[in-house]
Design a protein around this nucleic acid. Structure first.
Lengths: 222, 222
DNA sequence: CAATCCCTTACGGGAAACCGTAACGCATAA
DNA sequence: TTATGCGTTACGGTTTCCCGTAAGGGATTG
């Protein structure tokens, strides 16, 4: 079993309960932090002392408070960790069960586990740690396993996300061509952009662009 | 101190940690449920047995699962509880720190406390229970006290919310007059609706209606 | 080399949204 | 009673969006 793990979650309740779950496994050392920046510092310190962490369990959403923070989300933390500590195993631990978010973490960063906070989190978390320790397979909460097969989101690419994002930020379709040129996104003609928006509306059965953006917001695409 | 309280939260971790906090107070009986429907059942049963609960601590967001649920959110639960058990004290216990949500619960339902799940939840929850037990004042987490003074949302009325909601559901401005007549909402002329949308865009500094709806979604207004 | 396919781009007509102006209805005040 | 103010409603012109058609430019194929 892992001998040294790090848990990052800004909500103290989660750390309290996670600690209880972790203590029921045979893990000799577990540390808990409430800020992403602190997580990175701990990882660096342990690396320097030649006693590195073996597993990071991290929440995805961290609320801002009075402290200045360089890393403000679990996703940013995961991205940094993957670059600086490629051997460290990662389990994401979140209330978010939206397929798009989950797939992104699994595919883009190749994390080893995704545990959804729900009614049986405690036992799931233990199973996840054991599975990841085994090293053979990833652990995904049963309630979101279907997310991986979900093709609704796999057919939506980065271009679509960019488009939806700019729309949600108030860029009118009229100015989108200029905006995309500014951002070096191609294709960027008014016509193609129009067609792509129409395709998205069709895909999500949206009555109009407002509806489309509302749906995208609900799905967590933007 | 309270002798009998009920805690409703669908995430087991929260119940585990809440239990720990509650045990540090002098409360002789505390029960924990993961479904809103169960909460209502427990309250009814205790009432019938002439041993009613004195305090309800409830989360606001409950995820759906395989079980059929009549009450699907903490807000609905609070609404029912206020009708059926007017003497029961209520503390809402949520990760949601958006002013609009908090004000709604405090004003529309007159709940006795609002604790935001954050980095010091455990001690805040204890303080909240003690304050509500005192019976003289309400408890609001310090980090959202400013929400009560926030006038951004107090100037947005139910009519605005209805309008934003229908827009986000894909009703085009063109058909809004008919929709509002169907819903018996007045005023409902095309012209007034146009003007109100323009006012909202102005208020939130939205470039266009899409942007407006994105902002409303972010603020939790719809 | 020409033929075909697919994606991108261009354009134009019609619908919806946007915005200013003005009339109407109703309440309060003179 | 008339005057004033405010919110609602009505209308028309301009802009933006929507949607169909068609032309342009590579890549692949015969």
């Amino acid at each position: 079993m892992f001998s040294k793990i790090l848990v990052a979650d800004d909500i103290d309740l989660n750390n309290i309960a996670t600690e209880k779950a972790v203590n029921e496994l045979n893990i000799s050392s577990a540390e808990y932090v409430k800020y992403c920046d602190d997580a990175l510092l701990r990882l660096k310190k342990a690396e320097m002392e030649n006693d590195p962490f073996q597993l990071l369990i991290t929440d995805l959403s961290f609320k801002a408070d009075h402290r200045d923070a360089k890393i403000t989300s679990g996703e940013q933390l995961i991205s940094e960790v993957r670059k600086q500590f490629p051997l460290l195993k990662i389990i994401a631990f979140s209330i978010d069960d939206r397929p798009h978010k989950i797939k992104k973490l699994l595919h883009d960063y190749g994390i080893e586990g995704y545990v959804v906070k729900h009614r049986n989190t405690s036992s799931e978390l233990k199973k996840a740690i054991e599975t990841v320790w085994g090293g053979k397979e990833k652990y995904i909460s049963p309630s979101v396993e279907h997310a991986l097969q979900d093709k609704t989101t796999s057919e939506i690419d980065d271009y679509d996300i960019q488009l939806l994002t700019q729309l949600s930020l108030g860029i009118p379709q009229e100015n989108m061509e200029a905006k995309f040129k500014e951002l070096n996104i191609t294709p960027n003609s008014k016509s193609t952009i129009e067609k792509r928006i129409a395709k998205l509306k069709d895909y999500f059965h949206a009555n109009n662009t407002i509806h489309l953006i509302a749906i995208a917001k609900d799905m967590g695409l933007v």
